[in-house]
């Protein structure tokens, strides 16, 4: 009986601790949501009422409007380019043996290790010396390089999980290498490629540190505009945008979990 009691006590201690840690992880998001609908200019808890005024201000602030559009342009180009290059690279690494493969792999995986401010600073200098300044081309190139490792890894995992007999079967049935690629390999890689593209899009949309270096007023993305605003004003306009971003990503995560299984995307397969 006492053994069972000890076991119960241990379990409730463990789950209590887990719950507390999860509260610590999620409380900032709840505070943001709460602040975003507060009517007051000063931060206050609990909020004294309910209002959408900060949302109105966020939507009508021209810097945010421009930054939002800039961000969409950059993300659209960067994530699509990243998908193309990353998929090609994953296929290259999986299928071809060539001189310098290890070096190419190391270089393209390195943005995972290199601090974003280093990458951003490097592209700032490169853009300046090439006469491109802080143009869209430079911003997009930076985002492509930063998101590439995530896309290529996702596609690479899908490629590894592909039964090689499927491509052989298609070949045996008379499909030329191009037909095999078009009718068997690519369709079967689609889930991995969609996952990789989504990942690239989210990372590009929310990337801040490197973007701070490579964007100018004309090309700045939403996180950079938010950073500038936070440094100048203290009202909860940013809370409104943040709340929208939190709701958006949570919805996306729920969707990804429902459709693809988050555990599978993150490669945590629970036995």
């Amino acid at each position: 009986m006492s053994a069972r009691l000890a076991r119960g006590l241990r379990a409730s201690l463990f789950w209590g601790a887990v719950a507390l840690i999860l509260v610590y992880m999620t409380i900032p998001a709840f505070v943001v949501l709460m602040t975003s609908v507060s009517p007051s200019e000063l931060l206050e808890f609990p909020p004294s009422g309910f209002s959408f005024r900060w949302y109105e201000r966020a939507f009508s602030y021209p810097d945010f409007q421009n930054a939002f559009v800039n961000g969409l342009i950059v993300t659209a180009f960067a994530s699509s380019l990243s998908l193309l290059i990353g998929s090609a690279f994953a296929y290259l690494v999986d299928r071809y043996v060539f001189a310098g493969r290890a070096a190419l792999e190391a270089v393209l995986a390195s943005p995972l290790i290199i601090p974003h401010f280093t990458t951003g600073f490097g592209f700032l200098l490169l853009g300046a010396d090439l006469g491109l300044g802080q143009s869209y081309a430079v911003v997009i190139a930076t985002h492509v390089v930063l998101t590439l490792p995530f896309v290529s890894r996702t596609v690479y995992v899908s490629l590894r999980n592909l039964d090689p007999a499927l491509e052989r079967a298609a070949t045996n049935l008379g499909a030329s290498p191009f037909e095999v690629l078009k009718r068997v390999t690519l369709p079967l890689l689609r889930p991995g490629m969609v996952g990789g593209w989504l990942l690239a899009a989210i990372l590009s949309l929310t990337e801040f540190t490197a973007s701070l270096y490579v964007t100018a007023q004309r090309t700045q993305t939403l996180p950079v505009a938010m950073y500038t605003y936070v440094r100048e004003y203290t009202d909860p306009t940013i809370a409104a945008i943040s709340a929208l971003l939190i709701i958006f990503t949570t919805a996306l995560m729920l969707l990804a979990n429902r459709c693809l299984g988050l555990r599978r995307i993150l490669a945590i397969d629970v036995h």
Partner: peptide, 8 residues
């Protein structure tokens, strides 16, 4: 094929 390799 041993695994049948039917196109899923």
């Amino acid at each position: 094929f041993q695994s049948y390799a039917l196109f899923p």
